[in-house]
Design a protein around this nucleic acid. Structure first.
Lengths: 332, 332
DNA sequence: CATCGTTGGTACAACGTTGTAAATCCGCCG
DNA sequence: CGGCGGATTTACAACGTTGTACCAACGATG
């Protein structure tokens, strides 16, 4: 593997001159530039990024920590983060936390200060005090969950409002017994979506029915199916369900179909995330559609700002837009 | 950020002694070891991996190049590769090629020799001669597509046999007009699956019907829907379809439903990949299920072998197991 | 008592790059 | 022709780590 030294020897100039050519420094005699470029080409020189970064004090890597790439939302988001990072010549190191606090903790400390210039983390189980001693000095952006009392940049959507809009949509269709699937004791986003759900009901003058609010330990399809089965076994089943993500909704859809419950006529369903698959389910899924590309861009931009600007900036909380994507699971 | 030097000064020993403690060298006086460990803890020392790798000549990174993380198959696969790599203390750098030859080319040359110890690539458009000058000396493992005349390790499944089994299954159900969706002029896997399709038909003594073999430029849901629409517009539509991946099948499922064609009674559908979503579609999708975890492990193992053993090893071609997952899109 | 091996420790160089400061070149002005 | 100033090039150090070679102390061995 050719180094600057090899190229320099071949071209008959100093190492630094080669470095200058490589880095686009202006004042190099045309003759020398030509010779160097020739030598560069003939050796197939590639800069050793490790050495370069050691010297420059940057690594050129961003860390991206998320629960699981196999979850469509995160797969889609990761792809967009990769694109956004690439536009600023960053490579991305992805770490899967599997949603456990321990793994999130590990990921945060393993991607030490020297490995990455900054990190984007989508936490599920992290606690406030996990941030203190970990990765000190590494700029961090949180996605989704907003741990309030830690001064960290955050990107997300207005979950309360989004949930409210979803439920209002169901109300506008005349549904009155509206269930919710996805309550969770620890997850902040779950609490927010629940709040939006409740406030929409209240706006409509409806009393909350505790039996219609179902928890979900995980947000997978199986959990949605299970919850829907439970709802359908109630003496008075709901006529609509708001699921806190699309996977839950897809599971719910299946459980309904298995029991001969027709969607949307007997049961309207709304999801959250707008996974690609949701446009193709049968029926297609009405869902809250966050602007994932905007989230990815905002996260990378916040990191850029903080990496450039230092750590004394006020933490920012960026709210990205979303929309309600109306499909056949609510209107045939 | 603390360095070895800082720790050494604090502990009152030489830099190397600290390095020795950090790296678990045996012969350090207990007293000194204690002092060093104390200093290590109090400074919160983290080794600078860049510098360490510069010194050691390895990077600790694997490259993973695939078309798009938002495609479920690749999202799931990437997650498993991450896990397999993590077991051997490798970090993974993911590069999205978006399936274009140019991007695949770039990815291959950008993740230069110094950035990664080896790469796993799932090519879609790469040509034979793209491998020559790129990343010389970087061990490479190819997934899926098998570019035959390049001596590179390869992991995949027996596509011909898998396709044959899928089509045999349809034949065993009494279907006789069996279509195929996913033919593609360049893709090697497409050719193999087509071959399996044809050979199964031949076994059954059926003549191939060219009109029933549909191409797909991309393997997305939309392409499957489009193809199915086309099939249903034929004067004599098929009674079954073998789709070359699950996304095509999901799209086909939807197009069928939109036209009131019942699956499986009017039309049986088989997919390929066993995406998680396919167990939850309506009806659930019969599909070829590759052992993705085995693929991920095999790829990482091949890389380990080659990184350790040198480049003069014979290229290996590992075939991983698969199974036919029978669900409701073929049997109600 | 000289020698030896083991244990414990150190100084130095090197990995490949780039910033700094200093050296050299060259045309041109006076 | 001496010298000035910009253009061009260079040597050197440094980033943080670890391998190599070497030194020192010590108890045991002959």
């Amino acid at each position: 593997m050719a180094t600057l030294k090899d190229v320099a020897k071949l071209a008959g100039v100093s190492v630094k001159t080669v470095s200058n050519v490589v880095n686009g420094y202006d004042f190099v005699k045309p003759e020398n530039r030509r010779r160097v470029e020739e030598a560069l080409a003939s050796t197939g020189y590639r800069p050793n990024l490790g050495a370069r970064n050691l010297r420059r004090g940057r690594t050129g890597f961003l860390g991206l920590m998320l629960p699981e790439l196999s979850i469509p939302y995160f797969g889609e988001l990761a792809g967009l983060v990769l694109q956004a990072a690439q536009e600023h010549e960053w490579n991305v190191l992805i770490e899967q936390t599997l949603g456990t606090r321990e793994r999130e903790h590990n990921a945060l400390s393993a991607l030490g200060p020297h490995l990455i210039d900054g990190a984007i983390i989508s936490p599920e189980a992290l606690h406030t005090n996990d941030f203190g001693d970990l990765a000190p000095g590494v700029p961090l952006v949180m996605l989704g969950e907003h741990v309030v009392d830690v001064p960290i940049d955050h990107v997300g959507i207005d979950n309360v409002q989004a949930a409210r809009i979803a439920v209002r949509h169901l109300l506008s269709l005349g549904r009155r017994r509206i269930a919710a699937i996805g309550a969770h004791p620890q997850r902040h986003t779950a609490a927010q979506r629940l709040e939006g759900y409740h406030s929409a009901l209240q706006e409509a003058g409806l009393a909350p029915i505790p039996d219609l609010v179902l928890p979900a330990l995980r947000y997978h399809r199986a959990n949605g199916a299970e919850a829907m089965a439970h709802l359908l076994a109630l003496p008075e089943p709901p006529d609509a369900v708001f699921c806190f993500n699309d996977l839950l909704a897809i599971g719910a859809l299946r459980a309904a179909a298995e029991r001969g419950v027709r969607v949307p006529s007997d049961m309207a369903i709304v999801g959250f995330d707008n996974n690609e698959e949701s446009a193709y389910s049968l029926p297609s899924l009405t869902t809250i559609a966050p602007d994932k590309a905007a989230i990815a861009r905002a996260a990378v931009d916040l990191l850029r700002r903080r990496i450039a600007g230092g750590s004394d900036l006020e933490p920012e909380d960026v709210q990205t837009p979303f929309s309600l994507e109306i499909r056949n699971s609510t209107i045939a």
